[in-house]
Design a protein around this nucleic acid. Structure first.
Length: 562
RNA sequence: UGGGGGAUCGUCUAAUGGUAGGACAGCGGACUCUGACUCCGCUAGUCUAGGUUCGAAUCCUAGUCCCCCAGCCA
């Protein structure tokens, strides 16, 4: 075996170099800082895998799960709980390193006072509109606020009174005093604090001023001892500001910010706004709808944490805008589920098959392997009788070329059952539709083995009609028609972008009796069809399964082409 | 037309001046009691133009195209 040269992404390379150079005393600290204002999606999974992954891979490294809760008007405990559940489900452990930005509100305030004292921040009485108007544009510099040269004493007094609750929302803000003419708009005296009389889920009524992201984030990183602050590309322009605050405060040692490109997947949208609209407008059944890219949606769909983590390693970490094909995600989950999902038989579109030379009273229980390559997963027995259900697509009156399933006069194998030959067909005299297929069986082929070793090309799945259990099976497809919905969006209503066939409910599917007891979230391969996951709605009386992904289907490809 | 980034097979990603490699997708074949899995093979790429060099995806120059930024959101 040749030595595989493990290549590292640029961030892990930086971390490795820093360790090699003895920076940060050899300690590495990262953090995943979600704002608890929505559910996590697969885009977040990339950041989670990166930050927690580094903490797992490097010695003496740790990762904080920090709730970035600086805006109580949008955040809630419900989201905090959901985020923790999702991170844990993905398989990561933050130990006792779970924090909130709000844990640092008091220290942030003290640091802000320091900046005011140093003449690096001032209280501005301009309205939001005035601030916007004086910020300038991409090509023109901004103008100084009339309050920019307010005395330090007055700033100190006003800032204290802001905190004390003497002013209504919007009356004043605290701004960093940097450079109104900077070509980087983020440096044009950014707002550090705004007045917001609103209780916070962690601090209650303690505060009526709340820090802005740019002010809070870097300082929290510093206070927590973060060494590598990893974020997405759109924060790149904020890095000079991130560094400016740390410079002014004389932070040492100090964190450094590195940016990487976010994950995009074809036929998916990651925007919280759009995701929320899908739920609000009723296009999906909720945040955990199996068509959603949320962690909870993917989970309900049947994706495994391992498959999502595998996706993150397959796509890598770079600074290039990218759109990963959905097929990669599907490949990840197929690979994982092929290895571990027990097999079972289910019929989605039942067609009656009668074995005319099999006694009507008779029943046999035949052994079926739970996994073709893993005998340790054991076997189950499946009932066999005279009347069976087979898949409608597995029979053709007039078979196309290369079709090697059942057709008049042809022989196929009933998986783990018998070799049967089609002798007759019962059709609806009015419509011509096939009502029943009649076969004879080879009694010597019990279990599916040809007694004389003859090759039988086709093997189809089946269910004993009188033993099969009726089930609801939900088939999912891409939610968005266009591979890049956000680009195709212009001028269109959300509904117009959606795939009308993204969900098909098969109410009258049939499954093996053993599947009635399937626990929610248990996953199976329904042979020849795909991977399925028992939905939380499932009950023994009414089993419900979600199709995670189909099996690769080269026959579908061939028949579509011809 | 300010500032900040980015361009390698269809897609994602390696190659850190020395054979452009891998994965997914696609195509062909072998195997098969799942048209699955597995295995084998094939197709396919350095944004453009110059330059430096024995040698350039990599260094230099000039272009082109794409993305981000004007919240008291993060």
């Amino acid at each position: 075996m040749s030595e595989a040269v493990e290549s590292r992404d640029f961030i892990r390379q930086i971390v490795a170099d820093d360790i090699a150079a003895g920076r940060h005393g050899g300690r590495i600290v990262t953090r995943f800082p979600p704002e608890p204002n929505g559910y996590l999606h697969i885009g977040h999974a990339k950041a989670i895998c990166l930050n927690f992954g580094i903490a797992e891979e490097f010695p003496d490294a740790q990762c904080f799960l920090r709730m970035d809760d600086t805006n109580p008007s949008k955040e809630s405990q419900e989201f905090v709980d959901a985020i923790q559940r999702d991170v844990r489900w993905l398989g990561f452990d933050w130990g006792n390193h779970q924090t909130h930005a709000s844990d640092y509100f008091e220290r942030l305030y003290e640091l802000a006072v320091r900046l005011v004292r140093a003449g690096d921040a001032y209280v501005d009485g301009s309205s939001a509109e005035e601030i916007r108007a004086s910020r300038g544009t991409l090509t023109e510099p901004g103008r100084a606020s009339p309050d920019r040269e307010r005395s330090i004493e007055e700033n100190l007094d006003l800032f204290a009174r802001m905190r004390a609750g003497e002013f209504p929302d919007g009356r004043y803000v605290l701004r960093a005093k940097i450079d109104m003419a900077s070509p980087n708009i983020n440096l044009r005296d950014p707002v550090m604090y705004r007045i917001m009389h609103r209780p916070h889920q962690m601090t209650g009524d303690t505060w009526c001023i709340y820090p802005m992201y740019d002010w809070a984030h870097g300082q929290c990183d510093w206070l927590e001892g973060v060494t590598h602050s990893l974020c997405t590309l759109e924060f790149e322009d904020h890095r000079p500001l991130y560094d400016w605050f740390l410079d002014r405060l004389g932070a040492s040692p100090r964190p450094r910010q590195y940016e990487f490109s976010r994950l995009n997947l074809t036929h998916f949208v990651m925007s919280k706004r759009v995701l929320s609209a899908l739920v609000q407008e009723g296009h999906v059944r909720g945040w955990d709808d199996p068509r959603m890219p949320t962690i909870q949606g993917l989970r309900r769909r049947g994706y495994t944490p391992e498959s999502i983590r595998d996706l993150c390693t397959r796509v890598g970490v770079t600074r290039k805008d990218n759109v990963v094909e959905m097929a990669v995600l599907e490949s990840c989950v197929r690979e994982d589920l092929d290895a571990r999902a027990p097999r079972a038989m289910a019929v989605l579109a039942p067609l009656k098959l009668v074995i005319t030379d099999y006694d009507a009273e008779r029943e046999e229980w035949l052994a079926a392997a739970n996994h073709p390559r893993r005998p340790e997963l054991g076997e189950r027995t499946v009932p066999f009788s005279r009347e069976l259900w087979i898949e409608r697509d597995d029979f053709a009156l007039d078979p196309p070329p290369k079709f090697h399933r059942l057709a008049p006069g042809r022989e196929v194998r009933l998986r783990y059952g018998y070799l049967v030959t089609c002798t007759d067909v019962v059709r609806d005299p009015a419509t011509g539709a096939v009502l029943e297929v009649h076969c004879t069986h080879d009694p010597q082929s019990r279990g599916g083995n040809a007694p004389d070793g003859r090759k039988v090309k086709g093997t189809i799945h089946w269910l004993s009609a009188r033993h099969a259990v009726s089930a609801e099976i939900r088939l999912y497809d891409r939610l968005f028609v266009d591979p890049n919905p956000m680009a195709a969006r212009e001028g269109k209503a959300l509904g117009e972008l959606l795939n009308p066939d993204s969900m098909a409910i098969v109410a009258d599917a049939m499954v093996e009796p053993s599947l009635a007891a399937a626990a929610p979230e248990s996953r199976f391969q329904f042979e020849r069809q795909g991977y399925f996951c028992a939905d939380p709605d499932t009950t023994p009386e009414r089993p419900v399964f979600n199709r995670t992904v189909t099996l690769r289907d080269t026959w579908a490809k061939v028949s579509r082409r011809d």
